[in-house]
Design a protein around this nucleic acid. Structure first.
Length: 454
RNA sequence: GUGAUCAUAGCUCAGUUGGUUAGAGCAUCAGAUUGUGGUUCUGAGGGUCGUGGGUUCGAGUCCCAUUGGUCACCCCA
């Protein structure tokens, strides 16, 4: 038997890590609910055809497929061998795999809306906090199993939704103490206008993929990539002008206006962005980024991305945008929506690196009762139960051993108070309370323990 | 999927051109200390050096393979 291990890219979360993660998750959930979003959960696995083809060719490769059960049934051997031949050629065959682990929360949500649109009240605002899986090579900030926290509004085209989502980002990061975040916005319409003006509406994807890399690889390499994709020199010069738009939000808007504002789609995109900027409270750290493109092709309007503080070298810690016709692929056309997502695992890594978790998270048990004998611990147990009924978490040490051990246990578990009931206290119906942080201790009647302020 | 790099005690790491019985700090356990923890002192346990092959009189050290971690590319949260 070899050493036990866990699959590549997955993690165990120990007690203190879970507490910190819950701090993040609970913060996000509470803000979602504050804005009127309702919880939804979907299965870990979906039918494979629900997921395939929704995330592009690259995405399809990263979907975890689940092998069917019963493939070793001798009666099916011939069929299974034939099917497996097709799998070797890169096809999905129902006989081998018909389920897959979910890859994100948006597509399962779209599937849910398509299945239930008759019962739902629109606009439907749902949030969802669940793990998703990707068969990617793990690296910094990237795992094979990770949590997504999504909030989406479907059935409404109002920009008010975008405004609310931007505020949710702000509220969550403010509550987490991650005030150095930065929300970047752009509109897909601006990018469409850019592509149209470059005579390459069909080159939209190539253009967006290339310019998205600007801050990573630099202007020259972006231009090279565009040239490789077959764009003409004057088109690249135009894109270069676009990429050089910078400055304050107002300056960027002005720059966009002069470059693409004369087209219908460009004008529409600029208006979307302007609306958001005008209605956002100045405390919200939001800025226009014309190079923001986002890979997923289903976005159609405003797109968001949240950057972590620069010093931590982490990719985005959240993203989202507007999409039209999300459920169209499931046979229910005409339902538009907009949504955002939080990358909890990355937020955790960033907060850990910046040491932003409050110390108070580490306390779980407030009081440890010492165990100093049968009669003594019997009294201690009764008192402990009363305290527990009052909502104070406490423990009785599991065996009667020397003080030293019991103190050290309290210390290791970060328990701030101990209650000592030994033979002396037993006789006098008292108990001794010691605060381990201050070192102070006092002896009070047992009857007063319930009133003690721990 | 492509590439780089690493793997030695529970943890963080030393380990010389290949050479006797593989070390340290921290942690753990026991004692100093039978009703007062954190500090200190003393002692102990703990390793088929990731796994499998190979070269060699001899391998933690060199070679090959394999697994896993980390990082980068692609893509993404």
């Amino acid at each position: 038997m070899s050493k036990p291990s866990i699959p590549q890219g997955t993690r165990d979360f120990g007690p203190d890590v879970v507490q910190k993660r819950n701090f993040i998750l609970n913060t996000i959930r509470s803000v979602f609910e504050l804005y009127g979003f309702q919880p939804l959960e979907t299965p870990a696995m979906e039918n494979i055809e629900t997921l395939m083809g929704k995330y592009g060719d690259e995405g399809d490769k990263l979907i975890f497929k689940i092998l069917n059960n019963g493939l070793d049934n001798p009666d099916k051997e011939k069929q299974v061998r034939e099917d497996f031949e097709k799998v070797l050629q890169g096809k999905n065959v129902k006989g081998i795999t018909e389920r897959a682990l979910k890859y994100d929360l948006t597509i399962p949500f779209a599937r849910y809306v398509a299945m239930n649109h008759n019962q739902l009240t629109f606009p439907f605002k749902r949030y969802q906090v669940q793990p998703v899986w990707r068969a990617d090579r793990p690296q910094k900030g990237r795992y094979r199993e990770f949590y997504q926290c999504d909030a989406d509004v479907v059935g409404s085209e109002s920009l008010l939704n975008e405004l609310e989502l931007a505020n949710i980002y702000h509220d969550v990061f403010a509550k987490l103490g991650l005030s150095d975040y930065k929300i970047k916005i752009n509109s897909r319409n601006v990018l469409v206008a850019l592509a149209e003006l470059c005579g390459g509406a069909d080159k939209m994807t190539d253009i967006t993929v290339a310019i998205d890399k600007l801050d990573k690889i630099g202007l020259e390499k972006v231009k090279n990539e565009l040239a490789q994709k077959g764009l003409a020199t004057e088109q690249i010069i135009f894109i270069e002008k676009y990429l050089k738009i910078s400055g304050s939000n107002i300056e960027i808007i002005t720059g966009l206006q002069s470059l693409i504002g004369h087209t219908d789609t460009g004008d529409k995109g600029i208006k979307e962005i302007s609306y958001l900027l005008q209605h956002c409270d100045p405390s919200i750290n939001i800025s226009v980024d014309p190079t923001l493109a986002r890979g997923l092709n289903y976005y159609t309007g405003i797109i968001f991305e949240v950057a972590a503080p620069k010093e931590v070298k982490m990719g985005s810690i959240g993203g989202g945008g507007r999409y039209d016709n999300l459920t169209g692929t499931f046979g229910v056309p005409g339902i538009a929506g907009v949504g955002i997502s939080f990358g909890v695992d990355r937020i955790y890594d960033v907060m850990e690196e910046l040491d932003l978790f409050p110390d108070s998270l580490q306390v779980s048990t407030k009081v440890l009762f010492f165990n100093l004998g049968d009669a003594e611990s019997k009294v201690a147990f009764a008192l402990m139960q009363q305290l527990r009924n009052n909502g104070i978490s406490c423990e009785l040490f599991h065996e009667n051993i020397k003080f030293d051990k019991q103190f050290k246990y309290a210390e290791k578990k970060n328990i701030p108070n101990v209650v000592i009931i030994g033979s002396k206290e037993l006789e006098e119906n008292t108990c001794t309370i010691k605060n381990l942080q201050t070192g102070k201790q006092e002896t009070i009647p047992q009857a007063s323990l319930m009133k003690f302020a721990f």
